[in-house]
Simulated assay, not measured.
Amino acid sequence: MRSSSELTTIGFDADDTLWQNERFFRMTEKRFAAMLADHGEGEQISARLLEAERRNLAIYGFGIKGFTLSMIETAIEVTDGRVPASVISEILDAGREMLGHPIEPLPHARETVEKLAGTFRLVLITKGDLFDQERKLAGSGLGELFEAVEIVSDKTAATYARLFDRHGDGPARSMMVGNSLKSDVVPAIEAGGWGVHVPHELTWVLEHVEAPVAEPRFRQISDLSQLPALVESIRNRV
């Protein structure tokens, strides 16, 4: 007879958990700052861009398109409305390049997902632009390993409760794996599930929160290769 807390479902974040993402935002941000070098130091331009992104999250959501619009807005602001059309065009080109960038899977992503796929229900839970996330999943070659894919506007405890009820046996028997403490780990634990943090060398500042080290269902691993052993240890204790 199964325990009411036995692990049956594992959710995976996508960006910077299964494949590179933030690296391309950082590269484009540096390119953007160079475009506006006559109007401020790189750090100043980046700070203004971050302010715009923070303001616009509730309007544009997460992803490259919102980032591109925030760059345009910032360019208008720092130039007092005198930004040349050529710079706007270059910003749009940069956004299109991001949307077409090849997918770069992170180390151990495929082998780990393949190893767990036969035993657990695997669900990809990611936020961002629908078309871009679908493109990246298709390009990763990992799509066939997931029983379900959910592209959401944000990740909250209510989101995880709903999705783990829909695709699993509820949050208590589910785990969320990701690089963002704020989006992947903390709300999954708040919903009643396990939260596994896989740090990435680059994490967007708006995703930073303190690790919930006192929570009994919090775990951290250095990379995805350690996930199967962690999952097995959790299964053996319940």
Rank of each mutant, 00 (worst) to 15 (best):
205 V>Y: 13
111 E>G: 01
7 L>N: 01
48 R>F: 15
74 T>P: 00
183 S>C: 11
202 L>R: 06
141 G>R: 00
217 R>C: 08
93 D>V: 02
12 F>S: 02
63 G>E: 00
119 T>E: 15
118 G>H: 06
25 F>G: 09
175 M>T: 10
102 P>H: 02
113 V>Q: 05
132 D>Y: 03
138 A>K: 11
175 M>P: 05
232 E>Y: 10
98 M>P: 04
227 L>D: 07
26 R>E: 14
193 G>W: 02
112 T>R: 00
35 M>D: 11
63 G>W: 08
176 M>K: 03
173 R>G: 12
183 S>W: 02
159 T>F: 12
113 V>L: 01
235 R>S: 13
2 R>E: 10
209 V>E: 05
96 R>A: 15
19 W>G: 03
98 M>V: 07
58 A>H: 04
143 G>M: 03
30 K>I: 14
62 F>T: 01
112 T>Y: 05
57 L>G: 02
66 G>N: 11
237 R>V: 15
162 R>D: 15
67 F>G: 01
129 D>K: 02
188 A>P: 00
110 R>Q: 10
214 A>R: 12
166 R>P: 03
20 Q>R: 15
96 R>K: 13
81 G>E: 06
83 V>T: 02
27 M>Q: 11
99 L>T: 12
201 E>H: 15
68 T>V: 12
33 A>F: 09
157 A>I: 02
205 V>I: 13
18 L>E: 12
113 V>T: 07
223 D>G: 10
110 R>S: 04
21 N>L: 14
33 A>W: 07
56 N>Q: 13
65 K>R: 15
41 E>C: 02
26 R>Q: 14
114 E>K: 08
176 M>Q: 09
190 E>Q: 08
204 W>A: 07
116 L>Y: 08
83 V>M: 06
102 P>E: 05
198 V>E: 07
173 R>K: 14
33 A>P: 02
177 V>A: 09
162 R>N: 12
93 D>F: 13
96 R>T: 11
112 T>A: 02
73 E>N: 00
37 A>R: 08
214 A>V: 05
234 I>G: 10
78 V>F: 06
232 E>A: 15
29 E>R: 05
122 L>G: 00
110 R>E: 13
132 D>P: 01
145 L>Q: 00
133 Q>F: 02
94 A>M: 13
95 G>C: 02
197 H>M: 11
57 L>I: 11
94 A>G: 03
209 V>R: 14
105 P>T: 09
165 D>K: 12
31 R>D: 11
67 F>M: 10
25 F>C: 07
124 L>R: 00
231 V>N: 00
184 D>C: 05
180 S>G: 05
134 E>Q: 14
11 G>A: 14
186 V>C: 09
231 V>D: 01
171 P>H: 14
13 D>Y: 12
213 V>G: 02
224 L>K: 02
236 N>H: 14
79 T>F: 12
237 R>Y: 12
116 L>N: 09
1 M>G: 08
120 F>P: 00
